[in-house]
Amino acid sequence: MSESTTAAVTADTARRGGGELPSALRIGWARAVVETKMFFREKDSAIFIFAFPIIMLIIFGTIFSGQFEGTGVTVSQVYVAGLLGAGVMTAFQSLAIGIAVDREDGTLKRLAGTPLPRSSYFIGKAAQVLLSSAIQAVLLLAIGFAFYDLPVPADAGRWMTFAWVALLGINGSALLGVAASSLPRSGRSAAAVVTMPFVVLQFISGVYIPISTLPEWLVRIASFFPLKWMCQGFRSVFLGDAGLSLEVAKSYELDRVALVLGAWVLGGLVLCLTTFRWKSRRDG
């Protein structure tokens, strides 16, 4: 069939001139708005996501109220840094579960049938996790500064470190989350499939247990993943030189933090592009 035989349309369906496709960025922004609305309207899960790290901080801060000998660093300060890392990495959890659910409930199928560019979908998801991670970080820091004697970093260099660790960390985590969303067989199983490895990762990456007290082989495993490096980066920001003796390498190794997190951003991108599925496994 030639193009010309299908070109004409009747008056009612004719385009009213102009008719340019909206840009991916504009639609991405519209997605970001509805994703954020949906996120906050799922009240129980939104409250859980924000309350979880705070409750963990209070529990661990209460149980281990002392200082690390000879450092002047309190256990709670280490937890704030670690929970910040875990908070950033919830981008991984949110996306891995959220996209698996979108695949299950028909969201992805519906979107795939519209002129929505794929990138707009991801812009929307990214904006939503960026916002919720930012809120988590602000809450944790506010509580840390107010109740746990977390020193407020005075120099701009520390805040620069905070910014790039957070930015690389959230990007790497988000991309890894998108890739991991293809693993669960269904939206219903996603929470279980994703949460378990994430909790294990938190324990071996120095979120709940100081990294220097972990066996070397566990640290080596944790070193393959971004969480350990994010926590390390955040410790460098908030503990400073006083906490150096608590590090495995007696250094914050910021160059390696940048290297590993950067590699995860690139690797996560490749993983996303090669593994992402718009359909569930059953749909083939």
Binding site: M38, R41, E42, D102, D105, G106, T107, K109, R110, G113
Partner: peptide
């Protein structure tokens, strides 16, 4: 095109 799906269950909170 307009596609009306058979079993979509999405956007419940909007």
């Amino acid at each position: 095109l307009g596609i009306v799906l058979q079993t979509a269950n999405d956007a419940a909170e909007l």
